[in-house]
Amino acid sequence: MKENKSDKQLFQSYKNGIKREKKIVFAWQIAILLVFFTVWEVATRMYWIDPLIFSSPSRVFTVIVERLSDGSLFSHVQVTLIETIIGFLVGTLSGIILATMLWSSQRFSDIADPYIVVMNAMPKVALGPIIIVAIGPGYLAIITMGAIISVIVTTLVVFSAFREIDPNYEKVMRSFGATKWQLFKEAVFPAALPAMISTLKVNVGLSWVGVIVGEFLVSKQGLGYLIIYGFQVFDFSLVMSSLVLIAIFAAIMYKVVEKLEKWLIKHSR
């Protein structure tokens, strides 16, 4: 009995230790955030840095509240979010489909190899003007930018995951007389699932880049448009507000994908 109690006590103190550590980390995180905003606010008020260029937390806050209450901000956020999500999905899915095609034929992957190398090395945002001219300056062009930026990276990562599968799984499948498609569906694809999931997180970030640059170029609507517009009329409070919003939504999307990743890994095992 006595020993049993002390086991529990040890476990309890172990748990308390973890809790305390978490609290310390969280306190530091909040402190850094507060210090950052305070220094920013104070520095602009005391004219250590130019408030015209760097704005200030209070002004950014006022701009966001104002634009939220008159409803103009909402549509910009909505447009950018939808473009990013669609770009992310299209880029990831086409990357996986391309990788599947490469896997299905050794000859095709040999032929495609130099082109993929070039396309991977190419900075995709440089294609922006061409895409806008070809597709027309609209949502479609921006979504294409958001997708094209992640598609080749996804292809490469997923394709190499497809090829890294233990050949003995293939042996097992072949001994049952499996076709190439069955081999893919039953063994190769599920084995590569963790690699595919890990590309999701990278692609979320990439899609934001593509969409914001696309909005810079097309300049009609969206948070990227607000940044360019604020820059042109020298309203840096607007630029900063857009940046803050992008940071918040990009972080939320990242967290959602992270949750999705955890869920997928749990349910694919």
């Binding site: 003995n168 799984y169 042996k171 097992v172 039953e186 095992r269």
Partner: peptide, 8 residues
């Protein structure tokens, strides 16, 4: 040599 059961 090994079972090569599919873990999923």
């Amino acid at each position: 040599q090994q079972d090569y059961l599919f873990p999923w």
